[in-house]
Amino acid sequence: MSRIASRIFSETPVSRRLFTALGLALLAAPAGLSPAAAQMSDLKIMAPAAPGGGWDQTARSMQQAIVAANLARSVQVTNVGGAGGTIGIAQLVNGAKGDGNQLMVMGYVMVGAILTNKAPVTLEQVTPIARLTEETEAIAVPANSPLKTVQELADAIKANPAKVTWAGGSAGGVDHIAAALFAKAAGADPAKINYIPFAGGGEALAAVLGGKVTAGISGYGEFDSQVKAGKLRILAVTAKTRVPGVDAPTLTEAGLPLSITNWRGVVAPPGITAEQRAALTGLVEKMAQSPAWQDILKQKGWDGALMTGPAFDAFLKEENVRTTDILKSVGLVKP
């Protein structure tokens, strides 16, 4: 059996844990045998979501890259799930104040969730560290849709916003906000958009494919394989510049001055010293440039979008202001 086990586990990270655990159980002796080649002491990364989701994957990928690049002695990932990350951020602000070894993954979704959930703890209270990745949103219609260009969609929504039904992710999420910003840019009342939130990208995509709605709005990755199969047409992408391999204009090109992406980043607890902040920023920068991280980006299909320091501070503030405005006009946040 042990031969079988070693064959199966010989190349997996679990194998070491397995044999350590078994060894410990047999020897019944406490540990104390971790190698002490220290770069930074023990780092903790919180994923403010349940295991398996995007933030969790980001946290675990960071763990992988930091360990591979030997930037910290150990990295521990914890999950504090719930309510769009607002429970996680509350714990970061209240429980980890001044802890220079703690990071939390977050992203644009959290900006909206804090507002719609009226969370008591906001992003103004954390220490911004870096933006890591971003994904463009795309507007897609079924291949047989009469709408050929994004301009026609803009005209339709201006004429009667009720008749243009949107399928996308959860209410108040980045898809919803992008649809509202689109309507606003097209000259329609964003409060009047007929946005149908679906649970998860899959169900929304099914609704678009089945022709149940006028258009779908979601991360481009959701649509990619359907576009290649000729079942969907992308009318526009929401990034600032065109996306390589995607035959669709940006919204700005199409005359709608608007760009929005679904980004992810990391923040640290409040109350850390300037040196601690610089150390964490340096660590994340080094990680983002490491080959291990580049491999992960390729593997997961994420676009690297590193931004640190004052630029990220300003970016976070801007996103907060813009999101507050649009959520108020949609009626999800009371003015």
Binding site: R17, L18, L24, P30, T78
Partner: peptide, 17 residues
């Protein structure tokens, strides 16, 4: 927690293991 990597609540005792 150790073998199958589930996260279970940690206390002083668990940190020793």
């Amino acid at each position: 927690a150790k073998l199958l990597t589930l996260s279970l609540p940690m206390g002083p005792l668990e940190r020793l293991i």
